[in-house]
Computed example of a mutant assay.
Amino acid sequence: MPDYPFANQDHSLIDLNAAIAAILGEYLPKVDISPEGEDDGRAVTPFPVRFDLPVDNQLPDSATVYAFLYKVHENLEVRSSLLSYAEPNGRLSARRVNVRFAYLLTYWAAKAGGENSGQADSDMMIINNSMLNALINNRSLPNLPGSITEVIPPEEGLNSLGNFWQALGDKPRLAFGYAVTLSVGLTEITAPVHLVRSTQLGMGNKPMGDLLLLAEQVLAAHLLAAMQAQSEITELERAQLSRLLFECVLLPPRPDAGSEAPRVEVKLAVSGALAADLCTKVADELATWKSQPKLGEIDGAALLVAEEVDIRQLRSIAPPTTRNSRS
């Protein structure tokens, strides 16, 4: 086969046609081309295989198998886009897409006739039997690693076989539907990439906003748990607790805290409106937080409140009342 003129393109279709011709050639009988009257040896050639269709109303000069490619589409049932790394040039291979090629394979007798048509072992039946064996015995095609082959209904992708034969001006004949899925390479990746040979895990300081937000969430959860531990709370009380505003100010580490376990110290202000009884319980609970050694954890560090909790904006509200309607 001559060199393909566009070296930077994928050659899958060209290689596929060559592979189909090769597997058919292994099973189809050889054609004797010895001149008549010579008996000094047999000159043979592979059985003709063409990748088009016969001309309208014209049979080929010699018996021929036609492999007509009528449909090409991406096979979305087989997904793969893995990249491989080429060590010598430090480049990634191009991504690949799985493409399905659908063929219609038919046998056409020669113009001159001479075949014993109509018999169980006619030339047509022998050639079709050889084609069947070639197709079903090559589940993956040579020189096309990863190829997937299928013998399929021949009408797939064609309007109808009747219209198809009518367009060729011929009567219906046995046809093999044959589909092959190949991995087709996309445009080559030309930019060099560096192979990751090692990884390193480290810990850094969280941004201040993230740390304060985490502290406020931990303290709000701790307060809710404390209220639930004292007594069962109603849905209304749970809703009021969820609307409390927690505002933290991060305090710098104490000079003498170098040898202690990691800790996060904050100043806290809590504001919001609660029912009178619940407001009293919350104020009493917050008054104990300064003396508690740990109210929660942030990334393994103990969270504590270093000063009295500011509850000046925490207020109680009267429970809703129901008006009696006048009769």
Results as ranks from 00 to 15, higher is better:
6 F>C: 09
8 N>T: 12
9 Q>T: 12
11 H>K: 15
13 L>Q: 13
15 D>L: 14
15 D>C: 11
20 I>P: 00
20 I>F: 01
21 A>L: 11
25 G>S: 14
31 V>S: 03
33 I>W: 01
34 S>P: 01
41 G>N: 09
41 G>W: 08
45 T>G: 01
46 P>I: 03
48 P>N: 02
50 R>D: 07
52 D>Y: 06
54 P>Y: 01
54 P>N: 02
58 Q>L: 10
60 P>H: 00
60 P>A: 04
61 D>H: 06
62 S>M: 09
63 A>G: 09
65 V>R: 00
69 L>W: 03
71 K>H: 15
71 K>F: 07
73 H>W: 10
80 S>D: 14
81 S>H: 13
81 S>N: 12
83 L>T: 09
86 A>C: 04
88 P>I: 05
90 G>L: 06
94 A>H: 02
95 R>K: 13
97 V>Q: 11
98 N>K: 05
98 N>S: 11
98 N>H: 10
100 R>Q: 13
102 A>E: 10
102 A>H: 08
108 W>V: 09
110 A>K: 10
116 N>D: 15
117 S>N: 06
123 D>P: 05
124 M>A: 15
125 M>V: 11
140 S>L: 09
145 P>M: 08
150 E>Q: 14
151 V>D: 00
154 P>H: 05
156 E>W: 04
157 G>K: 00
159 N>M: 05
159 N>H: 08
163 N>I: 10
166 Q>E: 14
174 L>G: 00
178 Y>F: 14
183 S>W: 00
189 I>H: 09
192 P>Y: 05
192 P>W: 02
192 P>T: 06
193 V>Q: 09
195 L>M: 14
195 L>W: 07
200 Q>N: 12
208 M>V: 12
211 L>M: 14
212 L>S: 05
213 L>H: 12
214 L>W: 00
217 Q>S: 13
217 Q>K: 15
218 V>T: 11
218 V>K: 04
219 L>K: 03
221 A>E: 15
225 A>D: 15
226 A>E: 12
226 A>W: 00
229 A>K: 14
232 E>V: 10
235 E>L: 14
241 L>P: 02
243 R>I: 08
244 L>Y: 03
246 F>R: 00
246 F>S: 00
252 P>A: 13
257 A>R: 08
259 S>C: 07
263 R>I: 07
265 E>I: 01
266 V>L: 04
270 V>K: 01
276 A>T: 14
276 A>F: 05
277 D>G: 11
278 L>Q: 04
279 C>H: 06
284 D>S: 08
286 L>A: 04
287 A>N: 10
291 S>Y: 12
292 Q>D: 15
295 L>I: 11
296 G>D: 07
298 I>R: 03
298 I>H: 04
300 G>L: 05
302 A>S: 15
303 L>P: 01
306 A>R: 10
306 A>V: 06
314 L>I: 05
319 P>C: 05
320 P>C: 03
325 S>D: 08
326 R>Q: 09
